[in-house]
Design a protein around this nucleic acid. Sequence first.
DNA 1: ACAATACGCAACTTTTTAGTTGCGTATTGT
DNA 2: ACAATACGCAACTAAAAAGTTGCGTATTGT
Lengths: 112, 112
Amino acid sequence: MSNPSALEATLAPAPIFAALGDPTRLALVGRLSDGQARSIARLSDDTHLTRQAITKHLRVLETAGLVRSVRAGRESRFALQPETFATARAYLDSVSRQWDDALARLQAFVET
Amino acid sequence: MSNPSALEATLAPAPIFAALGDPTRLALVGRLSDGQARSIARLSDDTHLTRQAITKHLRVLETAGLVRSVRAGRESRFALQPETFATARAYLDSVSRQWDDALARLQAFVET
DNA sequence: ACAATACGCAACTTTTTAGTTGCGTATTGT
DNA sequence: ACAATACGCAACTAAAAAGTTGCGTATTGT
């Protein structure tokens, strides 16, 4: 963890978290978490926001890699891309692991 | 998942992700991930930003519950609060789990 | 006592984000 | 053929976020 690109790697998941850091987008993720792909129109009802607003949110999720879109005729369907969620999980895991390790070392020190 | 408060619960982690969705703040988390508490001044060197900027970022992390501060004399020291990271992990886990379950059901259907 | 350190508060600017409205185009159903 | 549906693009507004500067105060070290 002392080479120059280690910091970059640590910072890489920031756009993913930023994309998840909005209630509207979390709601969209929630609706897509069953693995089904849905059109923008379908994702736009059940909300007070306009279709354009939802479209923007979906593009944010797509840019972050959390979601993937496929055009099917006149509609474009969005589906979850679980690999990116795994990336975010891996980051959180690494933070927790470092913390646990530090705690273990501290306890070992105290008990000595 | 059909009661009114289920949606709220699903949306609850949004502020946590929002707080993590910034490279400066992720860097701060990285520096605190060894479990040690550090003063604002200490966290402010090694960056081109001003102390005030770092202070703001730390307050954002604190409001999200990712970090906790304790005043010690003239300095206030910040340390990671791992429980909140666990909350974020739990959310990502639940999304992944739902996706996996859906996939399993789909496969079961195809194989029938 | 006094200089240096470590903060907090407030005002301000700049940039980004969220959301809207309007309009044009491709696709589908009848 | 034509109406309805599903989008995309662009311009715009409003609000939030990131960052700075200036200044005042408490705490520490000598």
